[in-house]
Design a protein around this nucleic acid. Structure first.
Lengths: 242, 242
DNA sequence: TTATATGTGTTACTTAAGTAGCAGAAGCAA
DNA sequence: TTGCTTCTGCTACTTAAGTAACACATATAA
């Protein structure tokens, strides 16, 4: 992408606000952008299948993406990562160079930067200052997915759903705001906590009845952030008693 | 640790054989060892609790270690990582500098190198060539824990147990060899697949009856590596039919 | 508008996986 | 040897979580 591109200012802005590229000097980003091309994808499109993971690397400029894995026998889908502006994929095969069994799907209309893996490797080698942000970024990914794994192993579906809401809610006035997942269907919520629609629905009815959340087709809202936290504690305690 | 230490040659050998340090020049490793101290721990000892994760970083020279998380309400334990010679911990808090909610326990008598986190950061900064091995290493950890998470979300306990055996078995003559976990109790196997002893026991009885594995107190052996793989396929297929 | 797809709310049912409890075997330490 | 602890194998029971099926609501496209 060249500096005279119509996307340029807007792309620059997104990168400057990202965890990965925000602290890099402008010339370094400019150098980087030269080897990327801009692509747009429609909501629902499959951006990456396993074979693609060893060929190109993508950086999200706008829109959300889910990184999923599917059980071919049951058709059940599981969301490993939910990525937003400034995130890159697939990090795993960028790092170890091997094919990664994942599918990346657009959850909105997207703008992404894309470049061959080898080009990125060269660029990273030429710019060791990139690691200043990259290593902590990897730490967070590792932390996030470890949390996910242990939640799956140690907690029931109700706890996992409650945690999911807590994690994606930010306290703000006058109402708490549910980020990233506020327009998810029950099916998608289920694939985030490793369960199925019916089970998620059951728990949602309960939360609605208690007034903790509001839900209508394709729109979720958290009313009582505090109550959500309490519910988590309560529930853990009551399970502990048994 | 100084070059005249009695542990020195033996430590050097372990590092040279490791994925993380194997490709570094000897002087670089020597420089590194100067800021580490050698510690020994007894089997069963707790080497690290959450608070410790932001203070020191450890490198395993000999023996195994489990990185676990526990549900305080039920007492159930889950093993996130099983580490061996050449592995370091805790990588997550080394990367992002924040406390990590894990416990690290010795599964054998251990020799470890240990050093303050800040010292490691300085050393990594001074030796950018370390990233050549570090980044792929992180990729593998990320891959491994992602696999674990999706297995928990998408497969039943029998499949997970079978996969666990497959992953740790290497084909060798005359018999397949079960690495790292061959002396695990049922309880420990359970905490690797996010289940409980009784369930693991049930599946083991079945595998024994079919002659696929041999088990006696504290010793597991895989007889039919091939049959194990077939069992996995069969099982997935039969579940798919429903 | 109608048609079509997609999401939601429920019901009834099934079952894998977990809890509880106990007896005996194997290992270790005195 | 004895005693003690830790594993193992098994039984009986409970339940969370999943499957299947349907009616109906809500969006989107024709």
């Amino acid at each position: 992408m060249k500096p005279d591109s119509p996307f340029y200012p807007h792309t620059m802005k997104a990168l400057k606000e990202s965890a990965l590229f925000g602290n890099l000097a402008k010339p370094v980003i400019q150098d980087m952008l030269l080897s990327f091309r801009m692509e747009t994808w429609q909501k629902g499109a499959t951006i990456m299948e396993p074979e693609e993971t060893v060929r190109r690397f993508y950086v999200l400029i706008s829109g959300r993406v889910k990184v999923t894995r599917t059980n071919p026998e049951t058709g059940r889908e599981f969301i490993l990562f939910l990525l937003g502006s400034g995130d890159g994929f697939d990090v795993v095969s960028l790092l170890d160079g091997r094919k990664h069994n994942i599918t990346v799907v657009a959850m909105d209309d997207l703008e992404v930067l894309s470049s061959p893996i080898d080009t990125i490797h060269d660029w990273i080698e030429r710019h060791p200052e990139f690691n200043k942000a990259f290593l902590p970024y990897l730490g967070q990914q590792l932390r996030q997915i470890s949390d996910l794994a242990s939640d799956l192993a140690l907690h029931d579906t109700e706890t996992r759903l409650t945690k999911l809401f807590l994690q994606h809610t930010t306290q703000s006035n006058p109402h708490p705001r549910l980020k990233l997942i506020c327009d998810f269907s029950h099916e998608e919520l289920a694939s985030m906590i490793g369960s199925v629609r019916t089970v998620v629905n059951r728990h949602l009815q309960e939360l609605k009845k208690e007034g903790i959340i509001t839900a209508r087709r394709g729109h979720l809202e958290v009313n009582e952030l505090h109550a959500l936290g309490e519910k988590l504690g309560e529930h853990l305690r009551s399970r502990g008693k048994r």
